[in-house]
Write a protein that binds this DNA or RNA. Structure first.
Length: 893
RNA sequence: GGACGAUUAGCUCAGUUGGUUAGAGCGUUGCAUUCACAUUGCAAAGGCCACUGGUUCGAGUCCAGUAUCGUCCACCA
């Protein structure tokens, strides 16, 4: 037997062992011995490609690797699928920061393509770094399946997802108040905002007979509503809707009194004016009362012409001058210099958020839709549900278990307060929104003329068959229309069929125009649904139309037709003679609208109806054919693609074997700080798209802090660099220190002493093995079988009993996610029961049984410890003479 | 303002469904050293389990309240 060094050397061992594992192929579940075994899946939370490994990564890698290695040894087909996240805003902000620091440039000094190349280059090198660092921790992940949120498969998943949500009316475009970052020039989600305390002067201004208080006088130019609580006795004499003329910053304005209970009577004077364009509360209030909204500040944070002489100035700089003017006009009553309030800033890049009303894409969390195919416990296939209800249901039913349990409450609370999710971002790096627009620069003026009634069967479609000629009554209707329109005004006339519509058109236009017939127009048919309810009609978007067509088929045809018109007839006036179903289709589609009562009224009428077509939009997974289509410049919130992670990584939307085998996944292990950002979004996306849960257990870990419970930060100089730690103490020591003695969900204080202690433990194992090997050298039969009970000494029995108890405890604790307890059990047994006691006693015994118990017990210890300290255990396993890898040894029972 | 946690040895933390004498790591003190390991071993000191009540045969554990600390969410015109 070769002489072993006196101390374990992790640096020499780890890379060699890792390569051995890689060569074995067992990280890939397809290569594991038992292909019929139950799978066990964990999707790795993809680290951002923004930087290098920190202890947070080390923690999640450790926990997940422990779970995976444990289950793999239990014989499960364990898949740990790794990947990285493009982290749109974070990555772009990082590159922009470097660019500005090194070259003094902004992204607007480059073309979109040039800039993206820079970001991609950075992302690629950052990716390589972080992946190699994760490997150094011993991660037994299946690198052959590695995914990236921005790679081709994942991008297709994103586009497919967007399109389906759009088709279901879940994704919509709307003008709403959003968090606008003037610095990065993008919207930011509610979750990405951090609040900072700021001491600022608080101005009391005279607003006619009232005094209003504000910290932001620069937003007040357009204020023309003054709001107070309906129960406020001080302002009893003013009625809701009263108008008052008063002198304001840039001259006289007429103010309107609004009474609303949202006002806090105790705060300030109990009266405020509102700025709906730049404040979420004011926006809601304005929406409630139907008030005007006016933009004061532009996208760069500069004042607009409404500010008069201050127009064009940046709000920060303008404030002092504005206050001077207010003072000069005698409108300043007093100033409170000791006022603190909180300002919203962007977590990434730190710009001060200036709310704006902007056209953005949203996910509607309250809209009911039909979940066609549900495998969920409390939701039946075909049931109508909202995303909120879905998200709640799967946790309430216990299908998804959150550990520690109290986070369920936090989760429910969050859902109750959830607003529609703004998913569009005005940055460049990320998934571009799969919507294309074709614009008609001059616009096409449509006039819709409903054709007269025809003969034939009047079934549920009220106007008969489209190939039937007009009735006498139909001719009367056509003549009536003729008197209502001036035929000379039109450049072009389309009819939707060759019979009654063409006949109607001929009556109206005579020989003035050649009547064009377009087959696509004829085939566009939403039916005459005037007599139905809107909810019934809207259903067709999901279930298809009475004639068997899907909404998407009809829509694509309409878009194709309109796109052709834009190519050929921009600036023209076109009359379309058709039945109401056609018009409805056109209008609804090019405006991206749901059916409304308003549509029904219009289409029930027989009067000509005008519409200006300026733009048509197409939503699809690929760009539409034809010229001049412009893709939406916005990108998607990074969490949109992350939300698809558990199934996009398995190849969705293709129906892959992997998807069938490994989904739903077993465990989602991540930090509690991204429960809302990510975990909730995965539940939303997966239940919606797959009708099943993304994972059975959510296992949340805490934040790693320093020994004094302080957050690690560069400025405090208390950052523990995991790579430095690995170099000094070994990956096993770091892993063990991270999970030892900290319960799930709690923050983890990590001191260097703790890691050092764990290195001692690895070394202890090394020397235990050295001793056992020397002691058992004479054992001829290395295939140990437990000796008969009768021959065993009291010491032998005692240690075997303890081993048995430890094995049970470790297994039980691992199965129930009590990793820290499992670690302590095995630590205690290996060191204080086995080494301190039994091993010492064994020095006085030379019996065959003792040697066998020594050898057997050590084997079991290495197995139990392998998930926690994979490197040293694997190395010792080999030194004990085993040919097969420890990583696929059978877990002790 | 709302929600959720925490309070156990000098320090950092465990303690699963209530059940004998409350545990670990580090630190402290004493002893040991040709021994697999000084990156060690043996031993010891150190706790009114925040406080006050309650439920129970029995409470660190369950309930109510108080205090202190922390986290998250909303929001301050």
């Amino acid at each position: 037997m070769p002489e072993l060094p006196k101390a374990y050397n992790p640096a020499e061992t780890e890379s060699r062992i890792y390569q051995k594992w890689l060569d074995s192929g067992f990280f890939n579940p397809d290569n594991l011995p038992n292909q019929k075994a139950q799978p066990f899946t964990i999707m790795m939370p993809p680290p951002n490609v923004t930087g290098t490994l920190h202890v947070g990564h080390a923690l999640f890698v450790t926990i997940q690797d422990i779970l995976i290695r444990f289950r793999r040894m239990q014989g499960r087909r364990a898949l740990w699928l790794p990947g990285t996240d493009h982290a749109a805003i974070a990555t772009q902000a990082r590159v922009e920061k470097d660019l500005y620091k090194n070259e003094g440039k902004t992204r607007f000094d480059f073309s979109r393509e040039e800039f993206l190349k820079l970001v991609e280059k950075f992302a690629q090198s950052s990716h390589d770094t972080i992946i190699n660092q994760i490997k150094r921790l011993g991660a037994s992940a299946d690198w052959s399946r590695e995914a990236y949120t921005l790679d081709e498969t994942r991008s297709l998943a994103v586009r497919t997802a967007f399109k389906k949500m759009y088709d279901d009316g879940i994704v919509y475009r709307g003008a709403r108040i959003v968090n606008w970052d003037p610095k990065l020039k993008t919207t930011v989600s509610d979750e990405e905002i951090v609040w900072q305390e700021e001491k600022t002067p608080f101005y009391y201004l005279k607003y006619g007979p009232f005094t209003i208080a504000t910290a932001r006088p620069e937003t007040k130019f357009g204020d023309k509503y003054v709001v107070m609580h309906p129960d406020d006795k001080r302002y009893k004499k003013y009625q809701h809707g009263d108008k008052i003329d008063l002198e304001w910053i840039n001259g006289p304005v007429t103010a309107t009194i609004i009474k609303d209970p949202v006002i806090d009577m105790e705060f300030g004077t109990g009266v405020m004016t509102i700025t709906p364009w730049h404040d979420a509360v004011d926006f809601d209030l304005a929406e409630r009362h139907g008030l005007d909204k006016e933009q004061i500040i532009d996208e760069n944070g500069k004042l607009l012409p409404i500010a008069g002489e201050f127009a064009g100035e940046h709000i920060k700089k303008a404030r002092a001058a504005i206050i001077e003017k207010i003072k000069a006009k005698g409108l300043l009553e007093k100033v409170d210099e000791n006022y603190t309030h909180r300002i919203a800033t962007n977590q990434r890049g730190g710009g001060v958020i200036e709310p704006q009303i902007k056209e953005q894409w949203f996910i509607d969390v309250n809209k009911k839709f039909t979940l066609a195919d549900s495998k969920l416990k409390n939701i039946k296939s075909g049931q109508k549900v909202s995303l909120k209800e879905l998200m709640k249901s799967v946790v309430e039913s216990g299908e998804i278990k959150i550990i520690p349990e109290h986070f369920s409450k936090v989760y429910f609370h969050w859902i109750d307060n959830l607003r529609d999710w703004c998913i569009s971002r005005q940055i460049w790096y990320g998934h571009r929104i799969p919507v294309w627009y074709k614009t008609a620069p001059k616009g096409i003026k449509f006039t819709f003329l409903r054709h007269g009634q025809s003969e034939g069967n009047v079934k549920d479609i009220g106007c008969g068959h489209q190939d039937d000629p007009l009735t006498n009554h139909g001719r009367e209707q056509a003549n009536k229309l003729k008197n209502q329109v001036d035929a000379k005004n039109f450049d072009l006339v389309f009819s939707s069929d060759l019979s009654r519509a063409t006949e109607t058109a001929q009556i109206i236009f005579g020989n003035l125009h050649k009547i064009k017939f377009d087959k696509r127009l004829r085939e566009i048919d939403f039916g005459d649904l005037s007599h139905k309810k809107t909810t019934e009609i809207d259903k067709y978007r999901v279930t298809g139309f009475p004639n068997g067509e899907t909404y998407q088929q009809v829509r694509d045809r309409v878009i194709d037709f309109l796109s052709d018109l834009i190519d050929k007839y921009d600036g023209k006036k076109i009359a379309i003679v058709a039945h109401s179903g056609v018009w409805k289709a056109l209008e609804i589609i090019f405006n991206n609208k749901n059916f409304t009562e308003e549509h029904l009224k219009i289409h029930a009428a027989r009067e000509p109806f005008e519409y200006l077509l300026e733009k048509v939009s197409y939503v699809g997974t690929e760009a539409p054919k034809g010229k001049d289509w412009q893709q939406d410049p916005d990108t998607l919130d990074t969490w949109f693609s992350s939300g698809l992670w558990t199934f996009s990584t398995l190849g969705w939307p293709e129906k892959t074997k992997d998807l069938k085998t490994f989904h739903p996944t077993d465990v989602m292990e991540t930090g509690y700080d991204i429960l809302f950002f990510w975990v909730a979004r995965m539940i939303l996306m997966t239940t919606y798209f797959l009708g099943e849960i993304p994972f059975r257990t959510v296992f949340l870990h805490g934040l790693v802090r320093d020994k004094d419970r302080q957050k690690m930060s560069k400025s405090k100089d208390n950052v523990i660099d995991p790579l430095g730690v690995i170099d000094t103490y070994g990956a096993d020591a770091l892993r063990f220190a991270l999970i030892f003695s900290t319960a799930a969900g709690n923050d983890i204080p990590l001191a260097e002493d703790k890691i050092k202690g764990m290195k001692f433990f690895a070394n202890k194992l090394w020397n235990i093995t050295r001793f056992v090997l020397v002691k058992t050298e004479s054992l001829s039969n290395k295939k140990i079988k437990l000796p008969d009970d009768k021959k065993l000494s009291a010491e032998d029995k005692n240690i075997l009993n303890k081993l048995n108890a430890t094995t049970k405890a470790v297994t039980d604790n691992l199965e129930n996610f009590r990793l820290h307890e499992a670690a302590q059990e095995i630590y205690q047994f290996a060191w204080h029961d086995f080494a301190d006691v039994y091993l010492e006693d064994s020095k006085n015994s030379d019996s065959e049984e003792t040697k066998q118990v020594l050898f057997f017990t050590l084997e079991q210890i290495l197995k139990l410890l392998h998930p926690f300290m994979p490197f040293v255990t694997e190395e010792l396993w080999v030194l004990m003479g085993h040919k097969k890898l420890l990583m696929i040894e059978k877990w002790p029972e």
